[in-house]
């Protein structure tokens, strides 16, 4: 069974149709890259999955559970949406770290707040918080940032900030981790460290959807690639097929423009 199944997903902003009948599925442990030019709907797709935009049509199914169905209002209640979001993690293009918290606090915060809702929080508060702290430190260590745990975001480089953001998203153990152009806001010399971390996650079979403009990276890291254009999936398949030997004319043209520069 697929971890994620997206059926006939549609989204418009006013007159502009950004997503038209997007269908795809994702297997557990699979890394999926979404490529395409700006305005093709990639980011909107991620934002719909994370309930930051409300799709106009279609379904989002995670582990067999219908999280969202445009035709069923019962799946769209505010209160439940908050819980549903936790199936997904999202790493933003601009990191969006909380500036008033240290790296470690950024990674811990959401977990601590969620723990308050747990039944054993009152009795086992210390143990719960210790576990959250330990996990946060482990994740920062995994990101190669254990010596930056007490730094505030403005004291970190862009690459370091993005790695903290990845740790923060991983701290809640999402089923599917989404990346929205994770290196687009970085200086070229800083993209490598972030891409290496994501590659490391792929090697551990973290289930991921990566929206990216880094073709070589998409080629190396993903099990499957989706090429989007004008709000539809034009082509999908193994990176060796889609990127090295595209079948569709639109994919070819897009890739030519990329190899050109």
């Amino acid at each position: 069974m697929s971890v994620l199944e997206v059926r006939k997903l549609q989204k418009s902003f006013g007159e502009l149709q950004v997503l038209r009948d997007i269908d795809f599925s994702l297997e557990k442990g699979e890394a999926l890259s979404v490529i395409g030019s700006s305005g093709s709907g990639k980011t909107t797709l991620l934002r719909c999955l994370n309930f930051l935009e409300k799709p106009d049509g279609g379904q989002i199914i995670v582990n067999g559970e219908v999280l969202f169905d445009a035709a069923d209002a019962a799946t769209q209640q505010e209160k439940q949406i908050r819980k549903k979001r936790l199936h997904f993690g999202l790493v933003f293009q601009n990191f969006n770290l909380f500036p008033q918290y240290t790296a470690l606090e950024n990674v811990r915060l959401a977990g601590e707040l969620l723990a308050r809702e747990r039944e054993d929080y009152r009795t086992g508060r210390k143990a719960v918080l210790a576990a959250i702290d330990e996990k946060a430190r482990r994740l920062l260590d995994q990101m190669g940032l254990s010596d930056r745990a007490d730094h505030y975001p403005h004291q970190l480089s862009g690459g370091q900030q993005q790695r903290v953001a990845i740790a923060r998203a991983l701290a809640l153990s999402p089923d599917i981790l989404c990346f929205d152009e994770p290196t687009s806001a970085l200086d070229p010399e800083l993209t490598g460290e972030v891409l290496r971390v994501i590659k490391g996650l792929a090697d551990e079979h973290t289930t991921m959807i990566i929206v990216t403009h880094e073709m070589q990276f998409a080629h190396d890291v993903s099990d499957r690639v989706i090429f989007m254009d004008g709000g539809v999936i034009v082509e999908q398949g193994a990176p060796q097929d889609v990127i090295d030997h595209p079948r569709e004319e639109r994919t070819k043209r897009f890739l030519e423009r990329y190899s050109g520069n």
């Binding site: 994370n50 930051l52 908050r82 909380f98 923060r168």
Partner: peptide, 9 residues
Amino acid sequence: EAGQVLGMT
């Protein structure tokens, strides 16, 4: 949005 995707109220 960062707060939202982290499940905060």
